[in-house]
Design a binder for these strands. Structure first.
Length: 383
RNA sequence: GGGGCCGUCGUUCAGCCUGGUUUAGGACGCCAGAUUGUCAAUCUGGAGGUCGCGGGUUCAAAUCCCGUCGGCCCCG
């Protein structure tokens, strides 16, 4: 993997970059769709390519449990196994240990836990996390980190940072493959000093890229942004920066403004499956009865194949009868929205109009809120 | 003419036999909320019915009895 920064915004830390892998070139800032178990739920690799994505995320924890990394390795690795020709990043499983696994016990040596599927006992160390990810064969793999649930007391955050640094050393030391990039993960809760310290620890280890972890776990967005401001300046400008698990469009803009190059989030796919559709003029909850006879597309200004072909009325019907096509079409639309959103961010940076793009986004958002409160006023007003 | 079945939130059903643990419950629909390195095509909450109508029995009736209206079926 190779990364280059082509242009930097004047007013903010936003930057335009290029991530080159053997499975394609990714223009950054970029958004990665999440395919936990292989596919992005509801769609196939061909759809993903058509939508313009060149990099997606798979999850090592889930694939380790099912079907098992050895099977995937024997089947030629993730790319061949899943039929996805683009680049892949695997998450190490640190987050899943903390969010999913039962009876999780963490020591400096590693994590012992019970599978969320069958209760079977497992023990994962930084070394095995790397071994699993090398077997899976993604283009980019992630260090094994400890993610702490927030709010947390200072002691446990400090401990998680210490352990994450310790494990980062072991991850680097246990690598066998040189054709994969390895990213370190910054922790530190909502403590700016710990964030900076965590970042400095990792930078010494010269990772191929750096991720900001432990965020988007329920904290206020202002805290998230504050943590980015404390972290990013500590990271080398020449390496890609990845904000894990984020997020909503607003989070993407603010992340980019603070120097983030990569994002991943389940929001476009999961929300698609549950009927929340993103549009340039706010969200459309397609299950609402108001769309029963709505002949217009989800978003008249959208260029996706769903908006070109289907009405809100039809999508409302598909959703309500639980037709599986509903998930597919809604996911395709939402992913298009995110892909387009990132294209516009990149274009804005290239044209040195990122600040204007950001302002326009918030103006639009205020307008939506104004419309909503306007309706409420109308309803509440005496006749 | 004779006999039988059924009428319960928008829809569809349960409860009725053995009256009180029912402020009448479920499912679907409706409305709202949640969802950020995906156990999730998911989860949570809310509104909505004086149980066709009238009378009777009883301390107490969706529930038992009589009448009546509406729908359906069978036999002549």
């Amino acid at each position: 993997m190779n990364f280059s920064v082509d242009q930097t915004d004047r007013g903010t830390c936003a930057r335009l970059g290029r991530l080159t892998t053997v499975h394609g070139v990714i223009e950054t800032p970029a958004f990665m769709p999440v395919g936990t178990l292989g596919p992005v739920k509801g769609i196939d690799p061909h759809d993903l390519e058509q939508l313009g994505f060149r990099l997606m995320l798979n999850n090592a924890y889930h694939l380790y449990l099912r079907p098992g990394h050895k099977i995937i390795s024997d089947m030629g690795g993730l790319h061949r196994f899943t039929g996805w020709p683009g680049a892949i990043l695997t998450d190490s499983g640190g987050f899943q240990m903390f969010s999913l696994a039962k009876l999780c016990r963490i020591t400096d040596d590693g994590v012992s836990f019970q599978s969320h599927i069958d209760g079977s006992a497992h023990f994962i160390t930084p070394e095995t996390a790397i071994e699993v990810q090398e077997a899976l064969g993604a283009d980019i793999i992630m260090a094994f980190d400890q993610c702490v649930a927030l709010p947390a007391d200072p002691g446990s955050i400090r401990d998680a940072v210490r352990r994450t640094s310790l494990w980062a050393v072991r991850c680097q030391a246990s690598r066998r493959r040189s054709d994969q990039a390895l990213f370190g993960i910054v922790q530190g809760g909502l403590d700016t000093d710990l964030r900076a310290a965590s970042a400095r620890d990792l930078v010494k280890l010269q990772f191929d890229g750096y991720a900001v972890g432990g965020l988007s776990v329920g904290e206020h967005k202002a805290d998230m942004y504050r943590m980015l401001e404390a972290t990013v300046p500590e990271l080398p400008p020449s390496k890609p920066r990845y904000l894990m698990g984020v997020g909503m469009p607003e989070n993407l803009i603010e992340g980019v403004a603070r120097g983030i190059d990569l994002f991943d989030c389940v929001v476009p796919s999961r929300h698609g499956r549950t009927g929340w559709l993103f549009t340039t003029s706010g969200r459309v909850l397609i299950k609402q009865a108001r769309y029963q006879r709505d002949e217009s597309p989800i978003d008249p200004s959208c260029g996706c194949m769903v908006c070109a072909r289907y009405s809100r009325a039809y999508l409302h019907h598909l959703y309500n009868v639980k037709e599986m096509l509903a998930s597919r079409l809604n996911t395709i639309h939402n992913l298009w929205y995110f892909a387009e959103f990132m294209r516009r961010i990149r274009l804005a940076i290239a044209e040195e109009s990122f600040a204007a793009f950001r302002e326009a986004f918030y103006r639009q958002q205020r307008q939506e809120q104004g419309e909503i409160s306007g309706v409420e006023t109308e309803r509440g007003a005496p006749a």
